[in-house]
Design a protein around this nucleic acid. Structure first.
Length: 261
DNA sequence: GCGACAG
DNA sequence: ATCTTGTCGC
């Protein structure tokens, strides 16, 4: 049984932080950044099912979440499976450590899908948050990918600064505002210290001027991630699987509230 | 001391 | 993450 080492309200101790950092560093050794897929990256027609995951919360409630997993069929992007998990979270949101707060219920939903509806087991999962684009190159998308052994792509709606590597948020912002003119345009995010490509800012719609921040989660290259994400944005800035998981989990929370539960 | 800070 | 109001475009 996992030991509870921190209460919800308390700030995490330095010991807890180093413990989490060590766990991220260890799990990162199992992190694969090349394509290991069951479809041909040159032929996305081979993708049948793609999943999205997200969590929603009742207004003003940081602890009682609803986790959601949706599976969409390709290329029509219709929901063929959705499942929810009401869950209590025992940690606050701490930038850099999102996975320790949210990954467990998501793993549970993946496990349940594999047992109950294996025919819908996805070939790739899109995760709300970062993968490689992270201070220790191991965000929630990587974390979920390694622990589930599934290909994952990280999709962040806002940019996460990486100290010493991607420091100047305003410069990066100015640059991509200038460069990203139309859907499909992207700008790699390269660390100034190491030269590492952490991910990219990708414009996913002609209408939305703001990009999304795409980074490798697990078992997929950045180039393939970009192609997959673009195929999943026929209309909106947010890729359809994430958008569907977000809308469904929010609707679930609203329904909960209506029952005065 | 202050700002920054995936979700 | 969540709330909120209006505004613009199809």
């Amino acid at each position: 049984m996992p030991e509870i080492t921190s209460t919800y309200d308390a700030d995490p101790s330095d010991e807890q932080i180093s413990k989490w950092q060590k766990e991220q560093d260890e799990l990162r050794e199992r992190h694969e950044t090349r394509d290991r897929l069951d479809f041909d990256p040159e032929n996305l027609q081979e993708i049948k099912y793609v999943a999205g995951v997200d969590l929603s919360f009742p207004p003003g409630d940081e602890e009682n979440a609803v986790a959601c997993l949706v599976v969409l069929s390709m290329p029509d992007l219709k929901i063929v499976y959705k499942q929810f998990l009401e869950t209590k979270l025992y940690l606050p949101y701490i930038p850099g450590f999102l996975a320790f707060r949210e990954v467990e219920p998501l793993l549970e939903l993946i496990k349940e899908l594999k047992i109950n509806q294996p025919e819908f087991y996805p070939q790739v999962i899109l995760v709300d948050g970062n993968g490689l684009l992270h201070p220790r190159q191991f965000g929630i998308a990587s974390h979920l990918g390694v622990l589930s052994d599934l290909p994952t792509i990280g999709i962040a709606k806002t940019f996460l600064r990486i100290p010493g590597e991607l420091d100047s948020v305003s410069e990066i912002k100015n640059e991509y505002k200038k460069v990203l003119k139309k859907k499909g345009d992207y700008m790699n995010l390269i660390g100034t210290g190491s030269g590492t490509t952490y991910g990219c800012a990708l414009r996913t719609s002609d209408n939305a001027t703001n990009p999304v921040f795409v980074s490798q989660g697990h078992r997929i290259s950045l180039q393939t991630s970009i192609k997959v994400v673009l195929a999943l944005c026929p209309q909106y800035r947010i890729p359809e699987p994430i958008r569907a998981a977000d809308l469904e989990s929010r609707a679930y929370v609203r329904a909960q509230d209506a029952m005065l539960k």
